[in-house]
């Protein structure tokens, strides 16, 4: 099934674009989308800490996956996922 992915900030540089369409298996989860997109150790280093904790934000149709089922959150055809760094300051 097709998932529309939108990148913000650092991830625009990492992927060289601000949006793309990604195919994941039927009944795929956010973790499946990550496997497709972040297919090298270098890329995975941008979203997982050394101890394998998520350090980027994933928003599924505008909702942070931390308030859903995290990496196990199920995806549906034509969902939009925003991927961005976790930042703060001010």
């Amino acid at each position: 099934m097709k998932i529309r992915v939108r990148f913000l900030l650092d991830f625009v540089k990492i992927f060289g674009r601000n949006a793309m369409e990604v195919k994941v298996p039927p009944n795929g989860k956010v973790s499946d989308l990550i496997d497709v997109l972040f297919d090298s150790d270098e890329k995975r280093g941008h979203i997982f800490s050394e101890k394998n904790y998520l350090k980027g934000h994933f928003l599924l149709n505008g909702v942070n996956i931390l308030g859903l089922d995290g990496l196990h959150t199920l995806l549906n055809e034509n969902d939009e996922v925003v991927i961005m760094p976790n930042m703060s300051g001010g």
């Binding site: 913000l8 900030l9 934000h57 928003l59 942070n64 760094p85 976790n86």
Partner: peptide, 23 residues
């Protein structure tokens, strides 16, 4: 990434970064 953002834009860039996740 945070250091780069501060150098390039200053803290105004956090507005771009913190609206989407709800912070």
């Amino acid at each position: 990434p945070w250091g780069q953002a501060l150098r390039d834009y200053g803290t105004s860039v956090f507005f771009d970064a913190l609206i989407p996740p709800g912070s």
